[in-house]
């Protein structure tokens, strides 16, 4: 993509030089410059194989009713209408949106708080960095397995403690709220470090004189955070919010391992529902339509986030 825009940029800048040379017409220049488009070819080819062709197979499925490899019927946009209309899908959409909102509300402030609290220099910097980064190094399904066991009421340390030490009834296999909380806490444990590391990097890039000026101006700790650190975290926080939104909105592995979407439908997020339709029931038509809509939602929401966050900075 980048290579494409650069090349087309050259083509455009070359063209306006034309009036000074009467013997070279605009058409001459155009013919010469057009060869530059070949430079875009490698990008087009690789993007075609990595994105466009796989996507097109999904588009292909989404407009057909496939009975068997040889029997298929064109159904137009029927699967799309159905995907939007099905109550199960709508509930999963709301559930996923709610989950993402909670993830952002907890992880962003918590991550920033951890970053602010981390040491700025000395031996403890590396210790803190390693400790914070640890959850990020664990594979998704292992995280799921860890929490599946950790939160169990009978043999899991966490679940057992909540039940027997704190005396609160907790069982994520039976209770929807407990299951939801387990997934949320797991995600916070797994991904807050990412926000913290991004924010930490952002904080470290603030030149020392800003803090010195704040000291001279008699700013309190909170005022320093509010007026110096936070404004300068805008960039990294935009990235953190986008990444955490996309990831949490598409969360699959961990709830699949911990709750399998249950109890009932309590933790059936869009991705879990989608894989049920596509892999479980092998309804490739509805699944194709579903994933295209899913894809579109992620794109639109990311665009909205990005626009709002960058606009507010100007």
């Amino acid at each position: 993509m980048t290579a494409g825009t650069q090349v087309s940029g050259e083509v455009v800048t070359a063209a306006p030089a034309e009036p000074a040379e009467p013997h070279e017409t605009r058409a001459d220049l155009k013919r010469k410059d057009n060869r530059a488009w070949w430079l875009v070819l490698p990008v087009v080819v690789s993007v075609a194989f990595t994105a466009i062709i796989p996507l097109m197979t999904v588009v292909n499925f989404s407009v057909q009713d496939v009975f068997s490899p040889t029997e298929r019927v064109f159904v137009g946009l029927d699967w799309f209408y159905e995907a939007v209309r099905r109550p199960e899908n709508r509930e999963a959409f709301v559930r996923t949106l709610l989950f993402s909102a909670q993830v952002l509300l907890v992880e962003i402030p918590l991550g920033v708080a951890i970053a602010v609290a981390m040491p700025r220099r000395g031996f403890w910097v590396s210790v803190a960095l390693v400790l914070v980064a640890l959850p990020l190094l664990i594979p998704w399904n292992v995280v799921g397995t860890i929490w599946q066991i950790f939160a169990r009421a009978d043999i899991g340390l966490g679940g057992w403690t909540v039940n027997n030490v704190l005396g609160i009834g907790f069982n994520y296999t039976l209770d929807s709220t407990d299951a939801w909380i387990t997934i949320l806490v797991m995600d916070v444990w797994h991904w807050t470090p990412l926000v913290a590391l991004l924010a930490y990097a952002g904080l470290r890039s603030i030149p020392e004189p800003y803090f010195q000026a704040a000291q001279i101006d008699g700013a309190s700790g909170w005022a320093t955070f509010r007026h110096i650190q936070l404004p300068r975290l805008r960039g990294v926080l935009t990235i953190a919010i986008l990444l955490r939104f996309m990831d949490s909105f598409m969360i699959y592995t961990e709830p699949f391992v911990v709750t399998g979407g249950g109890p009932g439908n309590a933790t059936s997020f869009l991705s879990i529902l989608l894989s049920k339709i596509a892999v479980g029931q092998f309804d490739v038509g509805p699944a194709g339509a579903f994933s295209l809509i899913y894809f579109l939602i992620v794109q639109v929401l990311c665009y909205v986030f990005f626009t709002v966050l960058t606009r507010s900075g100007r």
């Binding site: 030149p207 004189p209 800003y210 010195q212 000026a213 001279i216 007026h227 110096i228 404004p231």
Partner: peptide
């Protein structure tokens, strides 16, 4: 009052 090498402002 101290002024540094580059302008230090509360930018927002």
């Amino acid at each position: 009052a101290q002024v540094f090498q580059f302008p230090v402002l509360y930018e927002e």
